[in-house]
Nucleic acid binder design. Structure first.
Lengths: 196, 196
DNA sequence: ACACACATGTAATTGGTTACATGATTTC
DNA sequence: GAAATCATGTAACCAATTACATGTGTGT
């Protein structure tokens, strides 16, 4: 178990904002890194408990003036050290599985315009993502001027934006390609039909 | 279990080349889609057995003239139908976790040039990938002219190439950004030291 | 004779999602 | 007092990697 990615994520998030609950962390993930990372509660809560046991984080009674019952956590010295250790270690290059690409790859076996449908969805989706990323970028600039984390956030954001743009462009050309191969294929099969 | 991705992959691969063994399928994956998909033997062999039991594929005695003992498989009608079903269904948009980006995002907590190191690795790696993808593209063109799968393969390839290129470009700007924030930060801390 | 690639599998473990279950507090 | 959202957690399941174990045919 030791070095679950979830634990690293939690360490990182608590390094940005101390005294957060599991619920908070989940929200932070959704609002800031969801375009390249996601976590479920079923992963976060048990991991928090474990990390507290191991002394990587310390549980604190809710600091925010007596609202709901909630368990907040902050980094311990050990946790901070662990975070730095992880950050220094080489990242593991996980093969980013894409069911979308897999379906395209086998597209020949699909019904004629299934692929085009998928690509259209893909493009629409990426357009949506792009606009939210651009919105986020504006927000980040506005609310965090001078914030020491800013350059790093902008870096990952610009990565996301670049890739989303490239996906949109690619989709465009993909649709034209697919349409032309489709007409070519149907033309051929028509000929065959006529011949029979 | 039913709809494991591994099963779909196997259906797809057998639709391209019938009478392949688990070993073959693994090799096909590595040589053709490894830039967006990977499978381990520990996943492939049990899945093959299960699929044979379910009648999605049929086991055949090694067709290739009496070499080693090996178990080959081919699609059944049911398997082909299942494949088409899967290809027609909407792809699931898996959040593509990137440990690399996560480390960058938390980069403020890292030792000064850890991030730069990571980005450099990232760039070097992407350059390597790009050259193999371009090589593969050449090969595919050369060996598969007129092959009905060609357009689909080129599509996924062009996706990979576009993204790899965009990653390389982004890395370039990322390194400059990081260097400048680094010098800024160290300058500030020097000042602070002098003041103390 | 030896090494290497071919070939198949299992067991242990991890990492993760999903669905379920519960209850408190705020807001309308 | 109903609905929404805050908040925490567990159990079941699934997908996947890794390490281990084993044996065969080919080329040198």
């Amino acid at each position: 178990m030791q070095h679950s990615q979830t634990a690293n994520l939690i360490l990182g998030m608590l390094s940005i904002e101390p005294n957060r609950s599991g619920y908070d962390i989940r929200k932070m993930v959704e609002s800031s890194v969801s375009y390249f990372w996601r976590e479920s509660y079923g992963q976060i809560y048990p991991t928090l408990k474990r990390m507290a046991r191991e002394g990587l984080i310390v549980a604190r009674p809710s600091t925010s003036k007596g609202k709901r019952k909630r368990q907040e956590y902050a980094l311990s010295a050990k946790g901070r050290a662990r975070l730095q250790e992880w950050l220094a270690a080489p990242y593991r290059d996980d093969p980013p599985r894409s069911e979308f690409l897999l379906k395209l790859f086998f597209g020949r076996a699909a019904s004629p315009n299934a692929c085009i449908q998928h690509v259209r969805h893909f493009q629409a989706n990426n357009k949506r993502v792009l606009s939210t990323l651009l919105e986020v970028e504006r927000q980040v600039y506005a609310n965090n001027a001078g914030h020491p984390h800013l350059p790093f956030w902008l870096l990952t954001l610009s990565y996301g934006i670049a890739h989303t743009r490239s996906s949109i462009e690619w989709s465009e050309s993909a649709v034209t390609n697919l349409s032309s191969t489709q007409t070519r294929t149907t033309a051929r099969s028509k000929k065959r039909v006529r011949r029979t």
